[in-house]
Design a protein around this nucleic acid. Sequence first.
DNA 1: ATCGCGACCTGGTTGC
DNA 2: TGCAACCAGGTCGCGA
Length: 306
Amino acid sequence: MPELPEVEVVRDGLARHVLGTTVTAVDVLHGRPVRRDPRGPVGFADALTGRRIEAARRRGKYLWLALDNGDALLGHLGMSGQLLLQRPGAPDERHLRVRLSLVEAPGSAGFETVASQPPQPAGELELRFVDQRMFGGLLVSAGGATLPPEIAHIARDPLDPEFDDALFVHRVRRRVSGVKRQLLDQTLVSGVGNIYADEALWRAGIHGERPGTRLTKRQVVELLQHAREVMTAALGEGGTSFDALYVNVNGESGYFDRSLHAYGQEGLPCDRCGTPIRRVAFMNRSSYFCPRCQPVPRRVGPTARA
DNA sequence: ATCGCGACCTGGTTGC
DNA sequence: TGCAACCAGGTCGCGA
């Protein structure tokens, strides 16, 4: 599933290929992905048509295209979403939900970086939102070009140069909530999902059910740094599979196969101590951890296994 | 105010 | 073999 590194790869691809283009048509094939747009599917399409794309920005797992009127096309890939760039006429993907027709503005150099692609009408391409499960979605954010108000509550992510480490440490240590739950709290830090939370906790040797109030400053600082490292590593690998005219979100990127130490490793020996990795239910999903490197805190141990 | 949990989705896999 | 149950999980809204 797309995590912060994959979303950043998409953002980067969009930045290199759709800036300066103008939206000439919008086709909403399924209403659900635009459910959060207050204008509805028709209003959504109308608000985009004729607009020029000026920037591609991201915060956490949200990304948006800044438009020439100060609005923004805000998107979230959810679990299974993809943003693909296709030539017009390419067969519809099975789960194609929204199609934006784009045209290069006269005089723009926007497409000249696209090499070795199939023949296509000059300056025309499609931006397609494909999403099997439709947890993701798109909306037009009024006045959202710089930062959409819809995501004003979303914290900066750990790779953001303006992320406030000290504030994060302070807030985590003030809450009794388990530290994994806090890592997943978008108002504290964004971009960390179930996979990166488990990986960062494994690297830090901290159990996710440890209350924030029971962690030292140093432990939280180190945990944050581990989250940065694991996401940076994934970003490096995610970027290598990027195809110029095919902005892809690959949930099976090599990174996940090669570099995971905890997530999805139930029963396999811990890469540090050999103890079998354990899996427990957590927030309607799963948590993976090494019971030796990440001992279950005594006070909450019984519930952590429930 | 803060916290925790269930609903939302589909398709692949598992179990009976 | 066929069908049902389960699982993946980010985000939001609701209830405690």
